[in-house]
Write a protein that binds this DNA or RNA. Structure first.
Length: 511
RNA sequence: GUUCCGUUAGUAUAAUGGUUAGUACGCUUGACUUUCUAUCAAGAUAUAAGAGUUCGAUUCUCUUACGGAAUACCA
C-alpha cells in the first residue's frame, strides 16, 4: 500500500453505541492496524434535535472497554481536529458555497409543508416524489434554478429560509467499486437532489462527511450497508469538488436473531439479550439498558464474536486475540449477506474465554462474590489456594464468573437444606445405617486425599456388595445438598475430614 | 411503489467448473462420571426455484421467488 491508511469511525451521538456500531468500529480498527494506519473517531453531531448529552462519553467509554482505542479524536492528537462536527460548523458553509458557485448545487426555498404535500400527492398516484431533474425546473418547486438571480438574492437578504441541494448530474450510469461488493452500478437519473446544507446553518451528513473525510485524509471508508445507497451521491460529491475519493467498503448488517430486519437498539430488552457493550442509562427516561460487560461477558470474547459476524479468516480457527485478528483480518473476506446475531454462539465464545483464563486471575474476580455471599458464615477461613482449587474444580461447568457461586457454594458453607426430590430418591430407610458405617471408614483415613478416600470408600462398598448408588448418592447429598457438583471425592478432600463427617451426621439427623 | 444489495443445513460460515460439499454453535442419540448445566463419541439437516453456457455448475449468465437496505432540512 503506497498511501497511508487512515480510517474513521463516525458515530452520531444520538444514544448508546450498539454492537453493530462496535463491529463497524472494530473492522475499521483491525484494518487500520493491519496496515499500520490511523484509526480516527469523529463525532457526527450535526443534528441538534437528536443530540443526546451522555452519548459521546458512552461511545468513548465503550470503545475503551472493547479495547478499540482511537489514535485521533476528541481531545486526542487533534492534528486534523476538531473531531466534533458541531465544532467545524464554519468549515462546511464555505464548501457549500463553492458548489453553488460552480453550479454543482443550488438554493431551494421550498417549505417542508410544500414538499410533504408533493410527496402525499405522488403517493396517492402511486408514484414516488423525487426532487431532481424531473421537476426541479418545472416551476412547481421554488429554487435558484427557476428563480431569477435578483429574486434569489432578495430572498436570501430577506432572511428567507433556504437549503442547498446537490444538482445531481443526469443521464449517466455510475460504475462504482466497493471492496466487499465489487462493482455497483446506478443510473444517476434515479438519484434525488439531496440536501447538503440545512436551513439551520448546519450541513447534512452527506456534505459534512465528504468534507471531513477529505480534510482528514481518510483513505478508506468502512461503514454499514445502510450507506450503500448513498455511495453514489458521495462519489458525485468528490467529483464535484474535484477531490480524489477514498475507497469504500460496505459491511453487511447485523440482523435480529429471530424475525425480520436489522438488529435495533430496542431488541435487547424485547428479546432478552444485551445489544449494548455496556450498561446505558437513558437520562430522560431513567431507563437502564443492559450491557455485555455487566452481564458478565469478557471484552475479548465479545470482540472475537463480533469479528466473526460477517467475516472469517477462511481457516477453522475460531478463537483469536485482538492482535491475531489484526494479523489475519482481510476486508475482502467480509461477507456480503447480512448476518443474524446468535446468542448461543456468543455464549460459546464467552465460555471458551472463561475456560482459557488463568484460575489465579479468576480468583480476583470471584473474591468479591465469595465475600459478599459468605459474610462470616463459612465453616472456616478460605485462603487463595483453596479458592483457586475450587475454581479449577467447577470452572468447566461455568460460562460466567457469576455462575461460580451457584456451582461452588457448598465448598464454603454447609448445606442448609437438601434438594427435596433428590432426598426422596437417594435417602432410603437403611441409608442412615450405611452413612454411620461410611463415617467409620472415613474416620479411619489419615491421609484425606482424593485418591485415598476414593480407594478406601470404594473398597468398602465393593466388600459390602451393596451397589455404589446406595452410598454415593446420599454421600453427595450430604456434602452438597443436591445432586450436582464435581467429583465427590474431590469435594470431600477439599472440605477435610472433620467437615465431611459433620455434614454426613447433619444429613442423617435431618433426613 | 421505486432503486440498490444479497441468498450454502435452524444459525454463523468454508470450499470448488468435476469432492462422500468441510467446520463451529444449536439439535438428536449413546457413553462416562453410579450427580450435572461438564466431558467424550456418533448422527441428522444445506448449495432458494427455473432456464441457459458447458462433456460437466453449487460455482459463470439470465429470470423468478424470498430477504435486507435506502427512499427525511436523521445519521
Amino acid at each position: 500500500m503506497t498511501n497511508e491508511v487512515r480510517v474513521r469511525f463516525a458515530p452520531s451521538p444520538t444514544g448508546p453505541l450498539h454492537i453493530g456500531g462496535v463491529r463497524t468500529a472494530l473492522f475499521n480498527y483491525l484494518f487500520a492496524k493491519k496496515y499500520n494506519g490511523t484509526f480516527i473517531l469523529r463525532i457526527e453531531d450535526t443534528d441538534k434535535n437528536r443530540y443526546v448529552a451522555n452519548a459521546e462519553q458512552y461511545i468513548i467509554d465503550a470503545l475503551k472497554w472493547c479495547n478499540i482505542p482511537f489514535d485521533e479524536g476528541p481531545n486526542k492528537n487533534e492534528e486534523f481536529g476538531p473531531y466534533r462536527q458541531s465544532e467545524r460548523k464554519e468549515i462546511y458553509k464555505k464548501y457549500a458555497d463553492f458548489l453553488i458557485k460552480n453550479e454543482k448545487a443550488y438554493y431551494a426555498f421550498d417549505t417542508a409543508e410544500a414538499l410533504n404535500e408533493e410527496r402525499k400527492n405522488h403517493e396517492e398516484q402511486k408514484k414516488t416524489f423525487i426532487y431532481n431533474w424531473h421537476n426541479r425546473e418545472k416551476g412547481r418547486l421554488v429554487n435558484s434554478l427557476v428563480l431569477s438571480t435578483e429574486e434569489v438574492e432578495k430572498r436570501i437578504k430577506n432572511g428567507d429560509k433556504y437549503v442547498i441541494r446537490f444538482k445531481t448530474p443526469t443521464n449517466e450510469t455510475l460504475i462504482m467499486q466497493d471492496i466487499i461488493r465489487g462493482e455497483v452500478k446506478i443510473d444517476t437519473n434515479v438519484l434525488d437532489d439531496k440536501i447538503l446544507f440545512k436551513s439551520d446553518g448546519m450541513p447534512t451528513y452527506h456534505l459534512a462527511n465528504i468534507v471531513d473525510d477529505h480534510l482528514m485524509k481518510i483513505s478508506h471508508v468502512i461503514r454499514g450497508e445502510e450507506w450503500l445507497p448513498s455511495m453514489a451521491l458521495h462519489i458525485l460529491l468528490y467529483r464535484a469538488f474535484d477531490w480524489k475519493a477514498p475507497e469504500f467498503a460496505h459491511l453487511p448488517l447485523i440482523l435480529k436473531p429471530t424475525g425480520k430486519g436489522k438488529l435495533s437498539k430496542r431488541d435487547g430488552d424485547k428479546l432478552g439479550f444485551p445489544v449494548f457493550p455496556m450498561e446505558y442509562l437513558n437520562e430522560t427516561t431513567n431507563e437502564v439498558s443492559r450491557g455485555y460487560k455487566e452481564d458478565g461477558y469478557f471484552n475479548d470474547a465479545l470482540i472475537n464474536m463480533l469479528a466473526f459476524l460477517g467475516w472469517n479468516p477462511g481457516t477453522e480457527q475460531e478463537l483469536f486475540s485482538l492482535d491475531e485478528l489484526i494479523q489475519v483480518f482481510d476486508l475482502k473476506k467480509v461477507n456480503k449477506a447480512g448476518a443474524r446475531f446468535d446468542l448461543d454462539k456468543t455464549k460459546w465464545f464467552q465460555n471458551q474465554y472463561l475456560q482459557n483464563k488463568n484460575n489465579t486471575d479468576l480468583v480476583e474476580l470471584f473474591n468479591p462474590i465469595i465475600d459478599a455471599n459468605l459474610d462470616g458464615n463459612g465453616f472456616k477461613d478460605f485462603n487463595t489456594e483453596y479458592r483457586t482449587k475450587v475454581i479449577s474444580l467447577i470452572k468447566e461447568r461455568a460460562t460466567f464468573v457469576s455462575d461460580f457461586w451457584n456451582l461452588s457454594n457448598f465448598f464454603f458453607i454447609t448445606p442448609l437444606e437438601y434438594d427435596v426430590k433428590a432426598s426422596k430418591k437417594a435417602w432410603k430407610e437403611d441409608t442412615n445405617n450405611l452413612m454411620e458405617e461410611l463415617i467409620v471408614i472415613l474416620t479411619a483415613i489419615t491421609d484425606f486425599s482424593t485418591e485415598n478416600i476414593e480407594t478406601k470408600v470404594k473398597e468398602w462398598i465393593t466388600s459390602k456388595e451393596i451397589g455404589f448408588g446406595k452410598i454415593m448418592q446420599p454421600f453427595r447429598l450430604s456434602l452438597v445438598g443436591a445432586m450436582k457438583g464435581p467429583h465427590i471425592f474431590d469435594i470431600a478432600s477439599m472440605l477435610g475430614k472433620e467437615e465431611t463427617i459433620s455434614r454426613i451426621q447433619k444429613a442423617c439427623a435431618t433426613l
